[in-house]
Amino acid sequence: MKPSISILGCGWLGIPLSTTLLKAGYPVKGSTTSPAKLKELTKLGLHPYVIDLHNRKDRNHFLNADILIIAVPHKNIDNFKFLRTQIKNSQINRLIFISSTSVYPNTNGEVTEKSQTLPTPLANIESIFSNISGIQTTIIRFAGLFGGDRKPGLFFRDDSLIKNPDGFINLIHLDDCIQIIKTLIEKNIWNQVFNACADTHPSRREYYTQEMQKEGRKPPVFDNTKASEYKIVSNDKLKKHLNYQFKHPDLTHFIEPK
């Protein structure tokens, strides 16, 4: 029997992830902060729950699962500490925390999982979940997210001045986000930290000019007054440990699946 999974945060990533896991035979619970979305989650086949981390109610039923995936853009450290206590007292024994490569500073070079992180709330939240006794935790640091209704050619307004034009792009498509999480679960890869980012890193100038043209928009305006700062996120560890090949490795020649 496949392990049961609870997904905290059924939004842009959580909803398609949950449907993928359901199709693969996993029992899945999903949370939303909006009662109006309960019917939508039910229709998808999920066992839905309304959970707002600001509201510290009992979450025993939701946490009655083998694996918890935390996929919420929430930065309140105290609320996460309370959630950690609830997890410790629950059935959960494996945990995936969705983080971001924004924890790394711009180094004007490559960053790996061993690189120093910034003292940000997100980095602190990672540490809250990385050392829970009796629970195996894997942290995935996703690069910038795109896919579906998140189109890079729409990331900026017409009047935006795009900084760091000669820096480099770090992005990952929704399809790869989902497949990476599914692969981690299937292969039982725990107690790890992984960067998840497409293989290619075109310049911001090249990439956003191309993507805005795809959307029929006028060319972007870049800030050329300062030297560009950037980082290039390495995905080598993830590809090696998971034996993973990206569905969308090449950002320059990407075409959105239909």
Rank of each mutant, 00 (worst) to 15 (best):
G216F: 03
H201D: 00
L21N: 00
L21H: 01
Q210H: 10
R59N: 15
E126V: 01
H47Y: 06
V193S: 12
Q179M: 12
L161M: 14
G30R: 00
M212D: 00
N131K: 14
V111Y: 05
S102C: 05
L22M: 07
F222A: 04
D176I: 07
I128G: 07
H173P: 11
F129A: 01
D52F: 01
N164G: 06
V28D: 05
F146T: 02
K214D: 03
S34F: 09
I15M: 13
S203A: 06
P3G: 11
T33P: 04
A123N: 11
I180G: 08
K151A: 06
Q192D: 09
H201R: 08
K182R: 14
Y208L: 04
L63D: 11
S133W: 00
N195R: 08
L174C: 04
E110S: 07
P121V: 06
G134A: 01
K88Q: 15
F156I: 12
I69H: 11
N60D: 12
M1R: 06
T33W: 03
I189N: 12
Y244C: 05
S102I: 06
L8T: 00
E229I: 02
P27E: 09
T200M: 03
R204V: 13
A196S: 08
D158K: 11
D223R: 10
L13T: 12
G216V: 03
L17C: 01
S99G: 13
I255C: 02
R84S: 15
T120M: 13
N93E: 11
D166W: 03
T33G: 04
D236K: 15
P16D: 05
H173W: 09
I67G: 11
I135P: 06
P152H: 10
Q91N: 14
A65R: 10
E186C: 03
H61L: 14
K57R: 13
P35H: 04
P35D: 07
K88M: 14
Y207Q: 08
I87F: 10
S127M: 07
L44W: 00
D176V: 04
T138K: 07
Q179V: 08
E113I: 03
Q210R: 15
H54Y: 10
A196I: 10
L251V: 13
G148V: 10
K247G: 13
K39L: 13
G14Y: 02
D250I: 09
H54W: 07
F129E: 00
D236I: 12
K114I: 03
D250T: 07
S18W: 01
P220N: 08
V72H: 10
T137H: 01
V50R: 05
T183W: 05
E113N: 02
A71W: 04
I96D: 00
D166K: 14
H74I: 06
A196G: 04
V233G: 03
H47D: 15
S160L: 07
N60P: 00
I67C: 11
S4D: 00
N243D: 12
I125Q: 04
E40T: 13
S18L: 07
N55S: 13
P3C: 06
T85A: 12
G11C: 00
I189Q: 15
K37T: 08
L242H: 08
G45E: 08
T120L: 14
